[in-house]
């Protein structure tokens, strides 16, 4: 564990908490993509199957449980409790266009061809693109509430911090994992446009509004 890794995990945790707070306080999931949240739930379940096979540390187990539980809690709030506020019409991204290619890619490019390893790899690829339905929703509506922007910023920062963690680990431990590094870089790049808008608008107290 190094500072970048810890900061990345905390940023990830913060993102999830911000999202739950936003939905709970406003009693609404307007502006949030249910499609992205479904993909994140798939990511966590397929990645954290090792919860039942390998014990790494208490921290590791707890964080995995928090990520899985909170993502299902988010889905419950969106699709059951506050269903009426869900932005159906704008959330029209077809997730099978992400799920299928990621799965095929995981079958083709993985560290070892075993069920757990392929599913782990699938989750890494899928996570890289899971935010696309959310970014698509923001671009369709042309704006995002400030708390939604903070959520996206924290979620995007998490993988960027992991990139620093991987650079650190490469120099400090000689450790690297090309699949994670490649997917993490793609994931971070997808957020760049959003990061720019966040820094130039939201941090200056303006609403995140896309140019018409």
């Amino acid at each position: 564990m190094n500072i970048f890794r810890l900061a990345g995990d905390l940023s990830h945790l913060l993102a999830i908490i911000l999202l739950l707070i936003k939905i709970w306080k406003t009693r609404s999931c307007a502006g949030i993509s249910g499609k992205s949240q479904i993909l994140f739930a798939v990511v966590y379940v397929s990645r954290y199957l090792d919860l039942v096979t390998t014990f790494i540390s208490l921290y590791n187990t707890l964080m995995k449980l928090v990520f899985i539980t909170s993502s299902f809690a988010t889905l419950y709030l969106m699709y059951v409790k506050f269903k009426a506020t869900y932005d159906h019409n704008h959330d029209s991204f077809r997730i099978e266009f992400l799920l299928l290619p990621c799965f095929v890619l995981a079958l083709l490019i993985n560290a070892s061809f075993t069920p757990l390893e392929v599913l782990w790899t699938f989750s890494i690829y899928l996570e890289a693109v899971a935010i696309l339905p959310q970014l698509f929703l923001v671009s369709k509506t042309g704006e995002a509430e400030s708390i939604t922007s903070h959520y996206l910023f924290a979620l995007g920062s998490y993988r960027a911090l992991y990139l620093l963690n991987w650079i650190y680990r490469y120099y400090a431990e000689g450790h690297y994992d090309l699949i994670a590094i490649f997917a993490g870089a793609i994931q971070t790049i997808l957020y760049c446009d959003f990061f720019y808008l966040y820094i130039t608008k939201v941090l200056k107290g303006k609403k995140l509004q896309l140019p018409a």
Partner: peptide
């Protein structure tokens, strides 16, 4: 190179 070491990451 997905050793148990890398599975420590989330």
């Amino acid at each position: 190179a997905n050793s148990d070491e890398s599975k420590d990451e989330l």
